[in-house]
């Protein structure tokens, strides 16, 4: 049986893993809340976020082909992150404009198929442009292990947890207490009514995509601090898992996405610790099917009945 210390360590591992899921899940849940669309390509935006952090660093000379790689100073690292956020936000908005908006009234399945198409397109374009071999993310902070009571975590993971908490708090404040946030909530309630009340629905939708994609970019950069390996397919699994997290928490609900992400991360780690890692990858999907059957509205979602 598992020792308590080990269990606590697994919970801590899961917290860091779940934070990244949460950051990606927020994008899924926001888009779904407004458009009822599963933005399948969101995992790929996460992947692009990591690459958008990588390329400028390479151009700036932080990724020489040989020799010691210099550490990126903190201000530059921050700038790189903001750059990646902006680039991803732009991509998110463009994808919505070009691919999803024309299909807004065409039914949810057409939009879903298109989203799958975009996802496959981004993956394979990345394969052609960035090549299949993995790239190293530049060194931004020195990894050190920090002992916190019974658990030992690297500082990078603590940073991931910290930044996620900060971003979530900011997002929550924005949605709750600003006019834009109110407009967003109005759109997710009823797009038609919102537009009648003078809300520029298209602008709000673009904004939703921009914010969600920027969050995914942050996740991409953050995960690269801890796991500095970039591949064109790196978005696939975290994307799917984050989607599971969003459903788990109740798709459409931002606190739900955060809770779902953390929960999924912790459950995966603990199951991996208790039952062995062989089947822990299946946990997310079993959990998904169970939650869809037992409580499709998720932990925090509002249950709606289909109108007749």
């Amino acid at each position: 049986m598992l020792a308590v210390n080990e269990l606590l360590q697994q919970v801590a591992n899961g917290l860091a893993k779940g934070s990244v899921y949460a950051l990606i899940a927020v994008g899924y849940t926001m888009v779904y809340g407004v458009l009822e669309l599963i933005n399948f390509a969101h995992g790929e935006v996460f992947m692009l976020g990591a690459y958008f952090g990588y390329w400028p660093a390479r151009w700036l000379g932080y990724m020489p082909d040989s020799g010691e790689k210099p550490q990126v100073p903190a201000p530059v690292a921050l700038l790189l992150t903001f750059g990646a956020m902006a680039a991803c936000a732009l991509i998110g908005v463009l994808v919505e404009r070009l691919a999803y908006r024309p299909l807004r009234n065409a039914g949810r399945l057409s939009a879903l198929i298109t989203a799958i198409g975009i996802s496959v397109l981004m993956q394979n374009l990345a394969l052609v442009v960035f090549h299949a071999d993995s790239k190293d993310f530049p060194r931004m902070i020195d990894q050190q292990s920090v002992v916190l009571g019974p658990v030992e975590l690297p500082n990078t993971k603590l940073l991931i947890i910290g930044v996620t908490a900060l971003m979530m708090a900011g997002l929550f404040w924005m949605v709750r207490y600003t006019r834009t946030g109110a407009a967003m909530r109005a759109c997710s309630h009823s797009m038609k009514t919102a537009s009648l009340m003078g809300v520029n629905v298209n602008r709000i939708i673009s904004l939703t995509f921009a914010i969600g994609s920027a969050m995914a970019a942050v996740a991409g950069v953050l995960i690269s601090l801890d796991q500095p390996r970039l591949t064109p397919l790196m978005g696939l699994m975290p994307g799917l898992k984050a989607f599971v997290a969003a459903v788990l928490g109740g798709i459409g609900s931002i606190p739900g996405a955060v809770a779902g992400g953390i929960l999924l991360g912790v459950v995966e780690s603990v199951v991996g610790g208790v039952a062995g890692t062989t089947y822990s990858e299946a946990v997310a999907f079993v959990l998904l099917i169970l939650i869809l059957l037992v409580r499709p509205s998720g932990l925090f979602g509002k249950s709606g009945r289909e109108k007749v």
Binding site: E6, Q10, K17, Q227, M234, M237, S269, T277
Partner: peptide, 20 residues
């Protein structure tokens, strides 16, 4: 004996098991 899935980049769960 620990395993991970292709493309995984977080090995902490496995390593914690091994450390124990």
């Amino acid at each position: 004996e620990e395993t991970f899935k292709k493309g995984a980049s977080d090995f902490n769960t496995q390593l914690t098991n091994i450390k124990g």
